[in-house]
Design a protein around this nucleic acid. Structure first.
Lengths: 195, 195
DNA sequence: TTTCCAAATGAACAAGCGTTCAGTTAAATG
DNA sequence: CATTTAACTGAACGCTTGTTCATTTGGAAA
């Protein structure tokens, strides 16, 4: 039943990545089989290898894709102004970007140990870039006298952990709107670093 | 080669749990086989079933054990005084308890999805107990007028995420002592909720 | 010294794994 | 209409999985 209408690879390719992302987020990389992913897409396991050289690369592409999307979106957000303004921008950006992508967040933070060594290094470098963007803002705030941050690197990790933790409890359709969540978290972030 | 000296079950039992904890923390529950665990202990896979009815129960016992240890230790810490004092006590307790147990923390936060439904519910209930202890302190602080916490439940989740996130970067023998980490994090926690 | 039995072995089970590939299908091309 | 070829099937590959169990081991108890 190959090629019912048009070239299928444009359709099947994204379907494979979507199915893989959802299943891996739900059960974990090691617990999901290529046959399960194929079944979700509606093809046989062998056909998956038209879209990925192997299972490991499929995971890597999902994680790398998420990180490059994140960095590109941060770039596009184009944070300007003094450190306080940029910190608010970063905080709201982080929440707005991550809240609608619970599966990507889950996979990107839980499956690091299932990446091969070189793939891990690549993803880690991208993550580090993102962390560094926040750290720069904190250091600038210290220099401006707007923040009191004794150890910018640790505060960076603390803030990102706090913000990313939203994904642990947030469920769309829950009792809180995105705007409400943003303001609560921005309030905590601001107070925890403000001079 | 059964029973070289004394009853082995007292020795092998803990060795099985230790090996399982270390391996699962490193590679994940689904990626670790019973043969790997047995190999680490120095026995055959079949002998593991003298110590656990199945692999799932082995994971559950590790996670439930961690949570009950945590709750017992919190109880023993016996936090007293006004809300600010108790919040400092909780913050320092959390860090001191979690820092020396990186494997338990990792497993307890990463393997929830690999628990069967009833086992998940049991672990989740214990986790909820721990979160509630912090939430009570925040509510008390609001009542005292010492804290400004618009949504105690969310602040609870935010603080626990921030504190538990230490395990993501902390390595024993790193550049920071436990005491230094405690004071940095307590400073952030205090400022983020203080009225 | 003999008996006992906790604790382990090691083989076996059916099922599932990632991956390969010769063959089939049908839309697109000439 | 004939040919090409991207996309997929379905079977097969060697290997690993969790779990069971008859059998063996050797220290402790009688």
């Amino acid at each position: 039943m190959a090629r019912k209408q048009g070239s299928h690879s444009d359709i099947t390719g994204p379907k494979v990545r979507d199915a893989a992302l959802r299943l891996i987020a739900q059960h974990g990389y090691a617990a999901v089989s290529m046959r399960q992913i194929a079944g979700e897409v509606g093809i046989q396991a062998g056909a998956l290898y038209n879209y990925t050289p192997d299972k490991q690369t499929l995971l890597f592409d999902l994680m790398q894709g998420h990180m490059t999307d994140l960095l590109a979106a941060l770039e596009a957000a184009d944070l300007q102004g003094d450190a306080m303004t940029r910190l608010e921008g970063f905080t709201r950006f982080h929440i707005r970007f991550h809240l609608p992508r619970p599966d990507q967040v889950f996979v990107s933070y839980m499956e690091l140990r299932n990446l091969s060594a070189p793939n891990f290094a690549a993803v880690e470098a991208l993550r580090r870039q993102y962390e560094d963007a926040l750290e720069q803002i904190l250091r600038a705030g210290e220099a401006e006298g707007a923040f009191l941050v004794p150890d910018p690197r640790i505060t960076t990790m603390a803030l990102i952990a706090m913000l990313t933790g939203i994904s642990n409890w947030y469920r769309s359709g829950g009792r809180l709107e995105t705007e409400k969540i943003e303001s609560i978290y921005w309030d905590m972030v601001r107070r925890s670093v403000a001079a």
